[in-house]
Simulated assay, not measured.
Amino acid sequence: MARTASRISLTIPADGGTLAADLSLPPQPDGLVVFCHGSGSNRFSPRNRRVAERLERGGLATLLCDLERNSEATNGRTLASLPPLQKRLLRVLDWTAQQDDLNDLPLGLFGSSTGAALALVAAAERPGRVQAVVSRGGRPDLVFQRLAEVRCPVLLLVGEHDVDVLELNAWAAGQLQVRNQLVVIPQASHLFSEPGCLDAVAEQSYTWLMEQFRQGRFGTADDL
């Protein structure tokens, strides 16, 4: 049965100011998923929102936040532009650990495109906090030097027709030292805009996250 989530708009303190965020909290959530958007996107991304809605219906809390401020360029991310965003994402994760209604929840990260690179680094930096990562059309190659440091399971979702990104994700799967799964979504391009493709992403993500959260809660994380 779907659970109705309460929706809260808030700000999270970060270096040099605050980050706008939207928190959806269903009753008795089974976990929390923080979304890491891609370059040029924000917390209003219709694709991420659609995935978040599926997770919320299944009983997961979601947090979508703007890692880039309005005054910052959004014409693409480079290796040089990632560290400040990585620092802000870590601040968001640390903030969740300080909230009474969030700190005991299993935590997963959902990263899109370049946001997946941020999610993977955050998982490496907070191994005791992050229990799962989902990458949608991700760019793990941007943080290749950190892949072996990730300590939680990783789901890599790539569109069948996103050939270059598929190759990069196949390579990344071989570099990860944890349980991971590369799932190719049939007929999908990079934005998963084809009919049914984004729904497939949402279902795969929900199933994967719930599996990892349940394993973590029942003490089988050492088997990952």
Rank of each mutant, 00 (worst) to 15 (best):
L191S: 11
N169F: 04
E203D: 14
G196T: 09
N75R: 15
L198R: 00
Q99G: 13
W95G: 05
P13D: 14
L55R: 10
S112E: 11
E72F: 01
G138N: 05
P127C: 14
T11G: 15
T11P: 04
R54D: 02
G58V: 08
G159T: 14
D94V: 07
Q28T: 09
Q212D: 08
R126W: 01
V143M: 08
I12A: 09
V130L: 02
L90V: 09
K87M: 11
V154G: 00
D223T: 07
R50Y: 07
D101W: 14
A61S: 12
L107I: 14
L224N: 01
I12M: 07
P27D: 11
L55K: 09
H161Y: 13
R3W: 04
A73D: 10
A124K: 04
T18A: 12
T62K: 08
L105H: 10
R129S: 05
L23Y: 06
R47C: 01
V34R: 03
E167V: 00
D94A: 10
L67R: 12
S189H: 15
L85I: 08
W208V: 09
P27C: 13
L198W: 04
T114R: 04
Q204N: 06
V92I: 13
C197S: 13
E167H: 00
L55Y: 06
L156W: 06
G111Y: 00
T220E: 13
M1E: 12
G76C: 12
L166T: 13
K87Q: 14
G16Y: 09
I185L: 08
V143A: 00
N75M: 12
F144A: 15
Q131I: 06
W95D: 01
S205E: 12
M210A: 08
S39L: 04
A221D: 10
G40H: 09
P83C: 03
F144C: 14
A132G: 01
L109S: 05
S189D: 15
A20W: 12
